[in-house]
Amino acid sequence: MLSLFAAMLIITFLHRHRWIVLRRIATIGSLLYFGRCLTMFVTQVPKADANYYCSPKLQNDSHLMWSITMRALSIASGVGLTINGKHKLCGDYIYSGHTIVLVITYLFIREYSPKNWRPLHLISAVFSFTGVFLLLVSRGHYTIDVLVAYWITTRVFWQYHTIAAMPSLRHNRSGHNHLSKIFWYPLFSFMEANVLRPVPQRYGFPFTITSCKKWFTRHSKLLNLRTQR
């Protein structure tokens, strides 16, 4: 999972329109995890693994918010993985956050890497499938968690990019354009307001030697002016 995420970030930073890609990663990721928060709140299922450790429920704690915050930071520091012993929650199954990351990283790698990089696409697909398979074998999630996560992740990703790539859909709010009725459509319109056409596949380093020299020269002049004052 971490290797796929790292590959996605590398491709993103090598993309000429990296800020658009990063914005889409953040927007789609937030939508998916917002949906996961809702399903976790309304759906509780038993532990998939009887040997899985669950921290005791917080009760009558005078420092409740502090305890919740520390647990959240502990889970975040473990990147949601159980192998480091920092995953303390139980019942957060529907739908699978691990599957979200595995699928969404593959989709972004496939979408924004060069189309002729088929070995990378194949390796990413194998890693993603293997990660999901091992997640099920290790009883980290129920099968329904993974299926729901795959379905929601792919629908949001494909709908978002379809609307973004087709101006006729983006600006058409007639009753025939049912994609404009999606609840996150206003957020999409705001985030993609300055993107008027499909993002071209162009790549380059974020910082060139010339840009670094200009930055160094400009800041050196500012430093000299401040010193003279």
Rank of each mutant, 00 (worst) to 15 (best):
I68V: 15
M65W: 06
V126R: 02
V132M: 15
R118P: 08
V79K: 08
W66Y: 09
N116T: 13
W66F: 13
L107V: 05
L120K: 12
R110Y: 02
K86C: 14
I104L: 14
S128A: 00
L120N: 07
G131V: 01
S113Q: 08
H98I: 08
I75A: 08
L73M: 08
S77P: 04
N116E: 10
G85Q: 09
N84A: 15
K115V: 06
F133R: 13
H63L: 12
L120M: 12
G97I: 03
Y106V: 12
I100P: 03
I100T: 07
A72T: 15
G131E: 00
H98F: 09
V132R: 08
V126I: 14
M65S: 10
K88Q: 15
P119A: 05
S128H: 01
H98T: 09
S67N: 07
K86T: 15
S128T: 02
L89G: 11
K88E: 13
Y106L: 13
H87G: 13
I123W: 01
S96F: 05
K86D: 11
G85E: 10
H121C: 07
L89A: 09
K115F: 04
F108V: 00
A72N: 13
I109T: 02
V79T: 09
P114W: 12
R118I: 15
I109D: 00
L64K: 11
F108Y: 03
I104Y: 03
M65R: 08
L64P: 04
I68F: 14
A76R: 05
G78D: 06
T69W: 12
A76Y: 09
R110K: 04
P119Q: 13
T69G: 09
L81S: 06
